[in-house]
């Protein structure tokens, strides 16, 4: 190990990707995850890191329109892709969904919440009339240790209702 030339092996990969509508050109080590690139290289820290194994959902982002665990995507893989993070949602103030998270008491420590909001947003876009059981199933990749699950389901239902009535 000590024989190896670490600096050579850290030779960076050049990546161009779009994050929240802004193009970024990065040079990162090959093993750098999209999550770490978003947080450390681009400086958007709303996307959180917990398990780093794709089990908790704290790092959920949109990648070309679909939600993914950004801890299980290499930054290099995102070449030419469009990434949407939690910061992209609320540029014009809180979204209806975010307001409902607050109103329902869904936010405790808050670390899982950006991922929850992103997963919930994806759900509302694909299944705007989701029933509670469908919400639970769709959200079950997002862990909340404060266990605000009941509150989050209520928030998603309330947001769905608002969107339904404004349609």
């Amino acid at each position: 190990m000590s024989e190896r030339d670490v600096s050579r092996e850290l030779a960076p990969v050049k990546v161009t990707l779009d994050v929240n509508g802004t193009a970024h050109r990065l040079e990162v080590p090959a093993h750098r995850t999209l999550l770490d690139a978003i947080r450390d290289d681009i400086g958007l820290t709303g996307t959180k890191k917990c398990c780093a194994d794709g089990e908790c959902g704290a790092c959920t982002v949109f990648l070309d329109g679909r939600i993914v665990n950004s801890c299980l995507v290499l930054c290099a893989e995102a070449e030419g892709c469009s990434v949407g993070t939690i910061e992209s949602l609320s540029v014009g103030g809180l979204t209806d969904l975010q307001e409902e998270f607050l109103a329902a008491g869904a936010v405790q420590c808050g670390v899982c919440i950006p991922g929850q909001v992103m997963a919930a947003e994806a759900l509302l876009q694909t299944n705007p009339t989701a029933k509670p059981a469908e919400i639970r199933e769709a959200m079950s990749g997002n862990l909340c240790r404060c266990a605000g699950y009941e509150r989050i389901v209520a928030a998603i239902q309330a947001a769905a209702k608002r969107r339904g009535s404004s349609r």
């Binding site: 947080r39 400086g43 958007l44 820290t45 709303g46 996307t47 959180k48 890191k49 993070t85 939690i86 910061e87 949602l89 609320s90 809180l94 975010q98 998270f101 607050l102 109103a103 008491g105 936010v107 405790q108 808050g110 670390v111 919440i113 950006p114 909001v117």
Partner: peptide, 23 residues
Amino acid sequence: RPVTRSGGAERVTGAQSYLTDLV
């Protein structure tokens, strides 16, 4: 009263800085 959480808006938008978010 069901007052909403202080710091809640920061938490739903990702603006809340936890230790590893500090520079």
